[in-house]
């Protein structure tokens, strides 16, 4: 009985759809819309810096201690070892 009812319902719908005339749908968009970016709010963590300025890096000046002969102990001892 249920099956007969379902078949009759389906045949009715097909007959109705075949008989219906296609309606033309026209979609219209807004021609002008204004956004206030300042009012926009993004929720979540910020991943980029807020500005694009570059800070000057502190310049490190390493002074190399240059050798300047101040003493002669090595040569004095060498001379002694070089005696007969």
């Amino acid at each position: 009985m249920k099956l007969i009812l379902l078949i009759s319902l389906l045949t009715m719908n097909i007959g109705f759809a075949a008989g219906e005339k296609k309606e033309k749908i026209i979609t219209e968009y807004k021609k002008y819309e204004k956004f206030n970016l300042g009012d926009l709010e993004v929720k979540g963590d910020l991943m980029a810096p807020g500005d694009i300025t570059v800070k000057e890096r502190a310049r490190v000046r390493i002074d190399n201690t240059l050798y300047e002969r101040q003493e002669y102990f090595d040569l004095i001892k060498n001379d002694f070892m070089n005696m007969r």
């Binding site: 000046r61 190399n64 240059l66």
Partner: peptide
């Protein structure tokens, strides 16, 4: 080695 240090110092 001493001259290498001097070279660095001159570059600085």
């Amino acid at each position: 080695a001493r001259l290498f240090d001097l070279n660095l110092e001159i570059i600085a």
